[in-house]
Nucleic acid binder design. Sequence first.
DNA 1: TTGACATGATTAGTCGGCTAACTATAATTT
DNA 2: AAATTATAGTTAGCCGACTAATCATGTCAA
Lengths: 174, 174
Amino acid sequence: MLQLRDLPSQVVLEKFSARYPEADTSAITSFLQLLRVASDLSMALDACLSQHGLLQGRWWVLILLMREDNHMSLPSVLAEKAGVSRPTMTGLIDGLEREQLVERVFDKDDRRKVSIKLTEQGQAKLDQVMPDYYSRLRLCMAAVSEDERSLLNGILHKLDAGIVAFDAPDGAGL
Amino acid sequence: MLQLRDLPSQVVLEKFSARYPEADTSAITSFLQLLRVASDLSMALDACLSQHGLLQGRWWVLILLMREDNHMSLPSVLAEKAGVSRPTMTGLIDGLEREQLVERVFDKDDRRKVSIKLTEQGQAKLDQVMPDYYSRLRLCMAAVSEDERSLLNGILHKLDAGIVAFDAPDGAGL
DNA sequence: TTGACATGATTAGTCGGCTAACTATAATTT
DNA sequence: AAATTATAGTTAGCCGACTAATCATGTCAA
């Protein structure tokens, strides 16, 4: 994602908004800072996971499986929930199966389907990773109060709703 | 980046925090929502830029050049400011030069150096893209008040400061 | 029942990012 | 002055994501 190190200074913002009157400087600042902090958080998460030999994609698969009562799901469902394409999910499952963290269980009734099952070792891996991840996240967020978290969620929700406007400005038929 | 579609439900959060007492459910919720909204925004930005035949990386290079008074900079400086590796910057410049949006200017004094210069066509491209981008962003952020933007910036700043804790929990010598 | 379509997973091939290694040039040290 | 080290940019090769196409299987309708 975006990992622009060099956010625009006040001088730069003025220079650009002089040339482009559409510019909303406080919107630009918040937008860029949001993307940058999110990118930094994502990289910190990567660093944490890599200490356990995991990447985000594979980690999410393990978590999604653990969420299920029977610790099983289908590749297509996992792809949907993880927000990756189905071929990508095939690759993630290949890697996890190689490390014996999940296993493929072939469906007797519909031979097109393959259930993915979290193994004992997969659960053990999560039991290593999750406490570490949760501890770090707790520390990282410690300075943000509960009120601020609620406020943040509300703002993020508004932004989320605003994305449709980003995709299609003024509702133009683009 | 993270584009998890399926954020944890209340039930899932309780299930996980029962097994992992380190979990701070409100921290988890805010963290995941932040990453997801940022990812969605980044994809919306990609969609906007692609309508102008650009990708984020190349677009940033054009912007960074426009920020300079003489519309010039060095590949290594651009890489630093854009937050990509130098080989990646070489590739970005290759592409932009192919489309004649920038040009390489070889340094007479230090023959190792190559200045990258925004061309007229590069400026023209920005003059197409930036008003569109700024208009969309303005709409997207319209529902977020100035006060909320300030608040958001403050929270993001705290989060940014907290990332060091994510990298090295309790200051352990990891 | 069989031909057309739908569905689930995978393979093939592309793309943009990265690290490590390389070339050329400059600066520094002895 | 020569040898060493540092710096700037690039090349080579890898990795994880994607799309498009493929294979196998199941479903539905004529």
